[in-house]
Write a protein that binds this DNA or RNA. Structure first.
Length: 496
RNA sequence: GGCCCCAUCGUCUAGUGGUUAGGACAGCGGCCUCUCACGUCGCAAGCAGGGGUUCGAGUCCCCUUGGGGUCACCA
């Protein structure tokens, strides 16, 4: 009964009230994929009917966040379209006109109850342990009398006249059949006294006139869906297909992910789209991860490109269960996508991140350093401590840090001296030269390569971990290498 | 509290009456190896509980329990 053969048109309809949350991004992604998969249209509509919560910066956060993941909209702000305007605050005349239809047909009625009366009503209900809700005080008003009071300037809202009996059923693409007894539904407000529509009313009117075929939204909207259906019925309109997406839970799995949570004493985890971007996550990884959060194609595939998602995404394969956000898996996927990058692209990205740290990196060095770390990082922030010494002096270290567990200070000093000597024999040591030198020293001293490499690694980079040593020596060049080896010797000798 | 939704390893999931319940992340161990990663091999880990239906239930039904959502002139 809800199956349609009309063209697929989906919409993402956020309200501009602040930051763009990942949960919203995931909803946008599923909505966008539904349209793209079917070759339909994706609409962006801004639900700014609450003037008290409006945030002027929110629209920009929304559009830049969507663009970041490559979720382009066919109709909406900035691009226009045949069903505009796409900001609800600019569609007020439409809502006024439509509410009149409902008022005239008796499907809606004017309510003059004041905020004070409503508050008192609620207080009494609470006191008597009754279910809260409007008591339909104005439902019985004679229409003519209501019109007169309104004309006299009395403030009013329009409420939906919900049937007192019967059941409202709808088919949800994700959960199947959902039904509600009308007796439990409220006569909800359609138009506010300030002349603005409520979400419920504007949403239905716009979805109808924008010819939306599939309404995809968060599952928190399930309880108001029967009311929406009743509005469609009051107009005599055919409702769209509904698909309520599962909530994204906190990493702990307890409660929905809303406010930022702190990892066990660790750094703050991003929750806003902007924060993910600033933390150095790749859009490919976020797209991939979000798609898997609540959806699966039924195979073992875990890595998906945007194109693969478009080809395979299907709302009916969305899992109804709430899903906990797993930062570790996102991090892993980010590493996967970093490794998939073209080396040149990675080098460029690395350069940008170094730039933010105030490190100016030459293109040639970047191109040489990039491949050394590309497969060893999961996030761009991991790259800094791995490569900084190529572009500036190593982090300060103590002479004792040079000495590996397998050697003593005297032999460590010998390693430093011999390495300098060997490397100085060649004009410009290549990685192969460096390898020969270090393996040779190990053989001479009857030691393993590991401790010898440790000494050199600390001497050159200031840390016991870093990129592959031999290549590092080649990229660093003879001047820097020999100078740092000499510096290391001085530090070692300074140890008491 | 009323109403609605949900329930497979710690996490994300596959499963559509007959499977040794599969994969991925994380964890642990081995291999690779100049460190760290990557890669690779392996281990551990799950059908919330109870009733039915059935020759046979993770799969269907009911109850319990647990979790979530929602009850505004906010969306």
């Amino acid at each position: 009964m809800t199956e349609k053969n009309r063209p697929v048109r989906t919409r993402f309809a956020p309200s501009p009230t602040g930051e763009f949350h990942v949960g919203g991004l995931r909803t946008a992604l599923f909505t966008w994929l539904t349209a793209r998969h079917a070759g339909g249209r994706f609409v962006l509509r801004i639900e700014d009917t609450d003037r008290t919560r409006f945030d002027p910066g929110a629209l920009g956060a929304l559009t830049s966040g969507l663009r970041w993941l490559g979720l382009d909209w066919d109709e909406g702000p900035e691009v226009g379209g045949p069903h505009g305007p796409y900001l609800q605050s600019e569609r007020l005349p439409l809502y006024q006109e439509q509410i009149r239809t409902l008022l005239d047909s008796g499907s809606a009625y004017r309510c003059f109850c004041t905020a004070e009366r409503l508050a008192e009503l609620r207080r009494l209900q609470e006191q008597r342990q009754q279910a809260p809700g409007y008591d339909r005080h104005c439902r019985g008003l004679r229409p003519e009398a209501a019109v007169e009071r309104a004309a006299a300037g009395e403030a009013w809202v329009a409420r939906l006249k919900v049937p007192l009996q019967g059941t409202t059923v709808f088919h949800d693409l994700v959960r199947g059949e959902i039904s509600y007894e009308n007796a439990g539904l409220q006569d909800l407000v359609l138009m506010k006294s300030d002349g603005f529509p409520t979400y419920h009313f504007a949403n239905v009117v716009d979805d109808h006139f924008m010819e939306i075929s599939h309404v995809t939204r968060a599952s928190e909207w399930i309880p108001s869906t029967p009311s929406h259906i009743l509005i469609y019925q009051a107009f005599g309109w055919e409702p769209p297909v509904f698909a309520h997406l599962p909530v994204i839970l906190d990493p702990s799995g307890k409660g929905k992910m809303s406010k930022r949570k702190k990892g066990g004493g660790g750094p703050e985890m991003p929750v806003y789209v902007r924060e993910f971007r600033e933390a150095g996550y790749l859009p490919e990884a976020v797209l991939n991860y979000l798609a898997l959060l609540g959806w699966s194609d039924g195979t073992d595939q875990t890595e998906f490109t945007r194109e693969e998602l478009i080809a395979k995404f299907d709302l009916t394969r969305v899992n109804p269960t709430g899903a906990a956000f797993d930062y570790q898996k996102l991090d892993w996927l980010n590493g996967v996508w970093i490794r998939k990058m073209e080396p040149a692209a990675f080098a460029r990205l690395l350069g940008e991140w170094l730039g933010r740290e105030g490190i100016e990196a030459g293109e040639a060095t970047l191109a040489a350093v990039g491949p050394l770390v590309q497969e060893r990082v999961r996030g761009m922030k991991d790259a800094l401590p791995l490569v900084d010494f190529f572009f500036r002096e190593p982090a300060p270290y103590g002479g004792a840090d040079l000495v590996p567990p397998q050697l003593d200070a005297a032999s460590t000093l010998r390693v430093l001296e011999r390495l300098s000597g060997r490397l100085a024999e060649v004009e410009r040591p290549t990685a192969a030269d460096a390898e020969g030198a270090i393996r040779g020293i190990a053989a001479d001293l009857g030691a393993k390569v590991q401790p010898i490499a440790h000494v050199a690694r600390v001497a050159l980079g200031g840390r016991p971990v870093g990129p592959p040593l031999f290549e590092t020596i080649e990229v660093l060049g003879p001047d820097v290498t020999l100078r740092r080896l000499g510096e290391a010797r001085r530090r070692l000798e300074a140890v008491p």
